[in-house]
Simulated assay, not measured.
Amino acid sequence: MAIRRVECLDGLRGLAALWVLIGHMMILTGFRLPLVSKPDLGVDLFILLSGFLMVFQYQLRAGSEDWSAPGTWTAFWTRRFFRLAPLFYVTLAAALIAGPAIYESRVAIDTFLGQALQPHERYTDASLANIAAHLSFVFGLLPDYAFRTALPDWSLGLEMQFYALFPFLVLLARRIGWMPMALVAAAGGVVVALLAGAAGLDWPMPSFLALKLQLFLCGMLIAADPGEGRGRSWMHLGLALLLAAIPIGGEQDLLHFAVRELLVLGFFALVHLRSLGVVDGVSRLLGSRPFHWLGELSYGTYLIHLLILQPVAAAVIGHFGTGLGAAGRFVLTGAVVVPVTYALAFVTYKLVELPGQKLGKAVIRRATGNAVRSRQTVPEELAAP
């Protein structure tokens, strides 16, 4: 590839996590602003970035890894497991232990705001089946377990399904090309999603890969080397815009359609149109040190925030009641939740995430019998919550 580092990835990951955090704060305090109060769109941005990052790193390693060899797939899956699992397991334990107390907080919030109560089992199910489904990351495939903890972890199950499929998408793209692969995969996803719906399967969140595969494919197309000729990059963009418009997986109103299209357009511009002064300036800003750290803490922020947010929002409501308006509840809740969440994200980044990634590299070295030297030039981060 012509580019060796994509500066904007750091900032975009960080902004996606912040979008999810602020959106959930709005939902749980009754304060609303257009667009920002839609945290699912922040998750869509994560998904787009994840598809991009996996292909980007694949192409950086293309000269040193044989993707026709199953050992390469195993190394890929190992890297991704140790990127997601360590912090997820820590926060999962916290969510299971604190689940009943967090559920009481959520009941107080929803009762006060006149919102439908959440199913109690989402917060209180500490059964072996639920724990096993989450430890193995298969919960996203199972409608009964896909949304069954106090964490926003449904997207992690989705992410793991994408990682499982990714080597096969790469092999297909190597055989027939990136655009034909994207068309075949998207069509297959739609068919599987429709068949699942016809069979009566209903996921409380779009945690089943067939419901969101098209957005992963959009990111993959933006990253994929178009070959000779700049025009093929624009063809990749055109196909990505078409795929992003597929009306399955999550809310499908006009706002969500328009924002998903804008996310694809904007990200394409940041990657491929750096020659434009404004775009270059935005990309540099998103790659600056503050945004770099915002991105580094994005995974922890995503996983941790609801564990802090729900008890704090309930406490604010319990103390002030109707004496404090929605905007006041939002500001006061955020004044506590935001610094605490990012502080915990920083601590767990240092104590859990980085050691987990180091352990993953050690496992790969031990399995291959070589001191594998990473040639990647961007952090191997989760681009999806």
Rank of each mutant, 00 (worst) to 15 (best):
H24C: 04
Q115R: 12
V336Q: 03
R365P: 00
I222R: 15
Y163V: 01
A185E: 10
L48P: 01
T72H: 04
L344A: 15
L255A: 11
K350N: 13
S37H: 08
Y89H: 10
G334Q: 12
G30W: 00
L213R: 05
S64N: 11
R274E: 03
I27P: 05
G99H: 10
A173C: 01
V107A: 11
I131R: 02
G323Y: 07
H272P: 00
L254E: 14
E251C: 06
R61H: 14
D280W: 11
D280Y: 14
V6T: 11
I47L: 12
G197Q: 04
D66E: 07
R79Q: 09
V352C: 10
G360L: 05
R4H: 03
G229L: 11
G321K: 10
F168K: 03
F31H: 14
A94D: 13
P339G: 02
V264N: 06
L156I: 09
K350I: 09
S105T: 02
P311V: 07
F291K: 05
G318D: 12
V55N: 12
M25L: 15
D44A: 06
P86K: 01
G23P: 08
L294V: 01
I22C: 12
R284S: 11
V340F: 12
L87W: 04
P385E: 13
A210K: 01
D144I: 01
V138K: 03
K358W: 11
R80N: 05
L128S: 02
A95K: 08
V352P: 07
P290Y: 11
V259F: 09
A240M: 00
G231M: 02
F268N: 01
Q118P: 01
Q310K: 11
I3T: 12
G99D: 01
K38W: 11
D10C: 12
R366A: 15
V312E: 11
L9W: 01
T91R: 06
P152R: 02
E380K: 07
L209G: 02
V279T: 13
I27F: 07
E159M: 00
L28R: 02
L285T: 08
A182W: 11
G200H: 03
L49Y: 00
S233E: 11
S283R: 15
G99P: 04
L211K: 06
V340S: 12
A345R: 00
L87V: 00
R61E: 12
G249R: 13
F76L: 13
S136Y: 03
A367V: 01
V352N: 12
V372S: 10
Q376R: 13
F112Y: 09
M205T: 15
V372I: 11
F82G: 14
L255G: 02
L18K: 05
F52E: 13
V107S: 09
V279Y: 07
L354C: 10
P152C: 10
T301M: 14
L382E: 15
H292P: 00
H24E: 02
G369T: 06
L117E: 01
L332Q: 09
Y145T: 04
W293L: 02
C218L: 09
T377F: 10
R5K: 04
L113W: 03
L215Y: 03
A129L: 15
T149R: 05
G42K: 05
L262Q: 06
V107H: 04
T348P: 01
L15D: 07
A335G: 03
R366G: 10
W67R: 01
H120L: 07
G219S: 12
